[in-house]
């Protein structure tokens, strides 16, 4: 799987080292955003038929193919629930975090 790599941004020490206006190298990820999630998708791999519908619909590209079934990249899943909603086999359930 082609997971995004996190990079460390060194805080500039002088104003001349700041980006000029909000313009910076694309795809420079400094943090994961799993902390946004209040509910998380849990996959029942026995029910999953590998139709990849959720894979296509995930707005953040966090669903990936794991053999004949899907899996979730929890580091970037924001818990929107679209995957569970579109699943034709009800193989994904949304479970409250911290429970």
């Amino acid at each position: 799987m082609n997971r995004p790599a996190l990079k460390t941004l060194k805080k500039p020490l002088h104003i001349r080292d700041y980006p000029v206006g909000p313009s910076f190298e694309a795809g420079f990820l400094t943090t994961e955003n799993s902390g946004w999630r209040s509910i998380r998708p849990v996959v029942d791999t026995d029910r999953c038929i590998g139709c990849w519908h959720c894979y296509l619909c995930c707005p953040d590209g966090t669903v990936f193919k794991n053999g004949r079934v899907i899996d979730i990249d929890y580091a970037f899943c924001k818990g929107c629930g679209i995957c569970a909603n579109v699943c034709p086999k009800e193989a994904i359930s949304m479970v409250r975090e911290h429970e």
């Binding site: 104003i15 000029v20 909000p22 190298e25 694309a26 795809g27």
Partner: peptide, 29 residues
């Protein structure tokens, strides 16, 4: 300009900033 967007050097433009950086951007302006 060195700050233009192109296919070879893709850029993230018009991003948001946190309280830790916003003042520096305004000072720069």
């Amino acid at each position: 300009t060195n700050y233009a967007m192109d296919f070879v050097h893709p850029k993230n433009m018009g991003f948001s900033s946190q309280p830790s950086d916003n003042t520096e951007f305004k000072y720069q302006q």
